[in-house]
Design a binder for these strands. Sequence first.
DNA 1: AATGAGTACAACCGCAAACAT
DNA 2: AATGTTTGCGGTTGTACTCAT
Length: 256
Amino acid sequence: MGKAPCSSMAGLERGPWTAEEDALLINYVQQHGEGNWSKVSKKAAGLLRCGKSCRLRWVNYLRPGIKRGNFSPEEDDLIIRLHKLLGNRWSLIAKRLQGRTDNEIKNYWNAHLGKRLLQLKTSKTDHSKPSTGSKNKEKQQHTDTKQDNANTFLQKPTRVFPFLLPGSSANDDTETLNSLTPLWSDHAVASDEEQILLYENGSDIYTCLDDLLFTEEYHHSIMFDKVYMEYQELLMSSENHVRTQADYSSFKPFLT
DNA sequence: AATGAGTACAACCGCAAACAT
DNA sequence: AATGTTTGCGGTTGTACTCAT
């Protein structure tokens, strides 16, 4: 039997949070620390929210150090690069953008970056019809964008058992390395052709990303480049390892 | 001024991994 | 080892707001 959804739990509120609820949650975290979300409604008197809702509110809104407001061009660039590497792994991407939450980045991608890239693709590839300026066309374009977006990374991300990568040691990056392990299985399904996006000036996103890395314009943002390169290296090593593991797994039944 | 479409983003849901018993 | 619970993630929805007609 499945667990009842958060919203249908007896006596618990849902919908937008009030200032009072925020204050209660902040007070709870200050006293008990993060975690134990399932006990919040019991320990924080007057806060009638399920643990899941509390965690989300804290992580995405109340947690100290959360950066709000517009994304900088450097952040845009890093998100695009990391999304190319990681797909829709918003939490991983968020870990590399200080003060940004996975939810915020996900929303920003869906609202701005993803559309921007795909519009560039559309404008580059669709030379067939002159603009009619009608709303229908805009609507159609919106629909197309949605479809294209869905084609970019079709696989539903799944977590796999974490392991230490070859040559890696127990350090701060271990968690990141482990988190990267599912990537190979995802990338294996979508063909290169399916994943090609067009970016500024109409060149494909892979070329653009490489260009971005080595242009003068971006030399000032060494930190962002470093992050990108770091991920690229991690990705390559983790792919190799997972591939080895996967190959072994597929043959194992025949060996025993 | 009314209204419908588009946009932004907070919040919710379902699922699966991780953890506890 | 089996089972139940909690946590974290990505996808989706709801709604307030803006803008064009």
